[in-house]
Amino acid sequence: MARSLAFTSYLICMGSLFAAQINAATFEIGRASVEMPAGEWKQVTASEGEVLLDGGASGRIPTDDRAFGLMHGERVAAILLISSSKGGIVVKTNWMNSCAGTKISYASNTAYHLNGLACARATGRLNTIAYLKRAVPKMFRELEALEPALPPISRSVSAVVANDYGTMLYVNLVAAPAFAGSPEKPLENVPAGVNPRHAAWADRLAVAIRDSVYSLSGKLVIPSVEFSTSPSSAKQGTPSK
């Protein structure tokens, strides 16, 4: 009975959480002008964030953080997390972040030089709620409210690019396992458990983000987000350890 009441409350709040549907193809996040892929994307929440340099000893870069949901009927097929530095801020930066893969995750370092940052990543299967809690703690409360509609298992496909003047843009697609990835030739020699087409999509995303970071307009065109089968009917499997 208690769970039934909780789920009823969830259904009531769905309208308010997803009231801010993104009708325009392009919208502003920090200094970035982001063009969403096709689909029924709705903003779930927003937050002010920051990137600490050397743990805060060398300064900090304020960011505009957003979370969007891709609706598929009454289900959420994917969550899109975006964090963008704000315009008008110039901080000479030496990025020390690593970009290394593991036995169960793909990573590709495409930085132009040592001071810059450019990393594309793709993971195996993840517990969606546990991953979101770790990835975006400031926005987790609103995302947790969507749990009945979220895929229990998902994959993270992301990229981050930053230049040595403090411009940074990070995009993370947390999608149901049925996410098709890149329609182009899949990458070879990716870690076991990582979908090669997801790794290829991460690389495409990194190129798009790099174009945004190193441009005056900040325009970012996110690659298309397609699914090989219905996100709500695909087998979920088990998360990576």
Rank of each mutant, 00 (worst) to 15 (best):
A199N: 03
R31Q: 11
N163E: 07
F7I: 14
V90D: 11
L220H: 07
L114K: 15
S212T: 06
N115S: 13
P223A: 12
G116T: 05
Y165N: 06
V157Y: 00
M36N: 01
G218L: 10
A200H: 06
T26V: 13
S156L: 10
S240E: 09
A111V: 13
R155I: 11
P62R: 13
G124K: 02
A122L: 07
T167N: 14
I153P: 00
A6Q: 13
I29N: 01
S108A: 14
E226I: 02
T229E: 14
S217T: 15
G39R: 00
A208L: 02
Y131P: 00
G56N: 14
S182V: 06
L81G: 02
A162N: 08
S98D: 10
R60T: 08
V171N: 01
L173R: 02
M1T: 08
E35F: 11
I82T: 01
S85M: 06
R60P: 00
P186N: 06
R204E: 15
K92C: 05
P177A: 12
Y10N: 11
I82W: 01
R31H: 12
I104P: 00
Y165K: 04
G193C: 05
P37H: 09
V44H: 01
V76M: 03
R3W: 09
A107T: 08
P223N: 12
E226A: 08
G116R: 00
L132Y: 02
E48T: 15
H198S: 08
G218Y: 12
K42V: 04
A32R: 08
A199Y: 03
V225G: 02
W41V: 00
D211W: 03
A162I: 07
T229A: 10
A111T: 11
K138W: 03
A162K: 05
S230Q: 04
Q21N: 14
A6C: 06
Y214M: 15
V91S: 13
K92N: 13
Y214A: 13
T238W: 03
G124E: 00
